[in-house]
Amino acid sequence: MNTMTLYTNPQSRGRVVRWMLEEIGQPYDVKVMTFGGDIKSPEYLKLNPMGKVPTLTHNGTVITEVAAICAYLAEQFPEAGLAPALDSPERGSYHRWLFFVAGPYEMALTAKAYSWEITDESAEAIGCGHIQDTLNTVEQTLAKQPYLCGDQFTTADLLMSSYIGWHTMMKVLEPNPVFARYVERCEKREAARRADSLDNALMEKSA
């Protein structure tokens, strides 16, 4: 029997993991952590020393970091079809995009949000290089195919579309028709709608 608990807050990246959990269709519990409160409690810090959310526990295993949690769930529940098969030619592309979202994309958009200067000199050492190079890489891929790995929606798309949608809403990203169509396509999924509804309800409850 699977025993899963998601430690989250509806105003956090935990929403991404909630979507992933709805995609795999397995039962799970939710514990809402309060910023400035029990998220820094000794009990929670034993699970996640960073004192951040999300954290997932699964049959005694503790997983932190959004991309890691989502990738873990895709592997634990392959019947959900959220990763290309092991012998698929897209398997390498899938891993590439998982780490691209967690690495270059996150770094580039954080730099953009906080107006951190990336010069020609520093770009050689910074994981994302120039911000626009990162964005162009994603846009060029999505301009020619519906999803990052071709025709199949994968965990990489769940991550990428979540972040692009968030950064567009927060006006960190300028409106982009390629990105807009991609986010809309991904967010039409039933699991995405269920997850959004559940977390919105949590926000209303705590308001």
Rank of each mutant, 00 (worst) to 15 (best):
M1Q: 11
T5C: 10
T8W: 01
T8E: 00
S12C: 05
S12T: 06
R13L: 06
G14T: 03
G14S: 03
V16W: 10
M20K: 02
E22W: 08
D29C: 12
T34P: 08
F35W: 11
G37T: 06
I39Y: 02
L45T: 05
L47C: 07
G51T: 06
K52I: 07
V53Q: 06
L56G: 14
G60W: 02
T61A: 13
I63W: 02
E65K: 01
V66D: 12
A71C: 13
P78R: 07
G81Q: 10
L82Q: 06
D87G: 10
P89T: 07
P89W: 04
E90H: 11
G92V: 01
G92H: 04
Y94W: 06
Y94M: 03
H95W: 13
L98M: 15
F100M: 10
F100G: 06
Y105A: 11
A111I: 07
A111T: 05
K112I: 13
Y114D: 03
I118W: 00
T119R: 00
E121C: 09
I126N: 07
I126P: 03
G127S: 12
Q132N: 15
Q132T: 11
V138A: 11
K144Q: 14
Q145C: 03
C149L: 02
G150M: 01
D157R: 00
V172T: 15
E174K: 13
P175D: 06
V178D: 05
Y182M: 01
C186F: 07
E187M: 12
R194Y: 01
S197I: 04
L198V: 14
L202E: 15
L202K: 04
K205L: 12
